[in-house]
Design a protein around this nucleic acid. Structure first.
Lengths: 233, 233
DNA sequence: CAGTCGACTACACATCCGTATAGTCAAATC
DNA sequence: GATTTGACTATACGGATGTGTAGTCGACTG
């Protein structure tokens, strides 16, 4: 049982404040979250938030540290205690993992240095994994591959509301999560282009590379607007 | 030449305000962008912002409409004029496409109804594309597949700053963009798991599905924390 | 018991915000 | 020329924000 799982009344006010802030920052973002809002959610006065954390920025720092520590602590407990096979442990811990991840993902948009450092760390690890020969096909540029993969996975978390709405089911609960997980598995295990198409796309990139600045089709990393043509980035 | 590409001094103050707002909303988010900030960026008084748009929310609405209209107008001009093959056209238009996309992507986090509607539309189109038999392997759940794909691509755009930093190159300029595009192509065309691993993952989802609520490994849509194990969602 | 310390509340303050409003000026119209 | 209209500035206002501060209360220590 980590500290996070204790009933709210077992926590010090400081911890309650930090947890409330973490949740509100994750849900609303840093700017839209007010000190008075955090205080109210924690059931204390705004003066106490000031007493314990000094400033809004320092409160964010504390949340950053906690989110990172917590992610690491869960990982260690899972390894030391064989927790990954203990369904009671995982069922209890999963919601807090999710909140930490959502907080860190939101913080990437809100401009938190700690979240940025974590992103870089994730890319480092994914790059190593891509280089270790564990993939069926080793990528030409493991670094870019890793960065893209981490960003794509993070995007799923950041846009969980949108995905849930589009599916008509909450992807943060069990069945929605399984459904989304299967879809992600399909995306990562089935080629989205035929070999011919892929070869053509690579040739097109070769051509673009050989030219001067920007002289043809944008093929932006598709978001709104281009994905209708398929994953032609 | 669309209106967006005219020199700034050719635009009415109203258009300059709207464009400044669109850019600041995309860069900073809705909450952190102030009316006075928009006015200053547009070179007008805050009273004029009020005069033309009435309220901050209405300004956002106008930006939403403009971003969507603009995305559609570019698409139509490209089709009618054969613009996709005209490198001068694309070179001129690409920056504004990018800004619109960044605005719409940021708006998904900030809670704009128009951006949400566009996301849904993109998912609809991607779902249709997935169902039309154009993929080498047709997904079991085209809807979830489409939603995941759109969210992943959108995430790349939202996190372009982070990706650029991780790669040490700006992914919004030509060479960085090509580099990232190749990596994305690799992710989408090479399976990230062996057939055995994929089958095991699918069996695990079957098991989870057959159980009660949440009784085992989280396999959250990975973001910070789990991608180190590979794309085990 | 008195003093100290930490947790906590209540309130104040300066600044900033979105919104409101009065006034100016130039161009167009009658 | 007089009037109207739209573009525009300057300023004000009420409310919200982050930050600051004084005071209370209970637990602990010497």
């Amino acid at each position: 049982m980590t500290r996070m799982e204790r009933a709210n009344e077992d926590l010090t006010a400081k911890a309650r404040i930090r947890d409330a802030a973490l949740r509100l920052f994750a849900e609303q973002g840093f700017e839209a979250t007010t000190i008075r809002g955090v205080a109210s959610a924690a059931g204390v006065s705004s003066g106490l938030v000031r007493h314990h954390f000094g400033s809004k920025e320092a409160l964010r720092d504390a949340c950053d540290v906690h989110a990172l520590d917590h992610a690491m602590a869960i990982k260690e407990e899972a390894i030391l205690a064989g927790g990954l096979a203990d369904s009671t442990f995982m069922a209890a811990v999963y919601p807090s993992i999710l909140l930490m991840q959502r907080y860190l993902a939101r913080s990437l948009v809100d401009g938190s240095p700690s979240a940025a450092a974590l992103f870089d760390r994730m890319v480092d690890l994914a790059e190593q994994w891509a280089q270790d020969g564990r993939l069926p096909t080793r990528p030409d540029d493991p670094r870019a591959f890793a960065a893209a993969l981490v960003a794509m996975q993070t995007g799923l978390l950041m846009l969980h509301d949108q995905v849930s709405r589009a599916l008509g089911a909450d992807v943060l609960d069990a069945s929605g999560h399984i459904r989304l997980g299967r879809a992600i598995l399909d995306i990562y295990t089935h080629p989205l282009l035929t070999d011919d198409q892929a070869a053509q796309a690579r040739a097109a990139y070769d051509q673009l590379q050989a030219r001067a600045p920007f002289s043809s089709a944008p093929s932006a990393p598709a978001a709104a607007g281009t994905v209708t043509k398929g994953p032609r980035p």
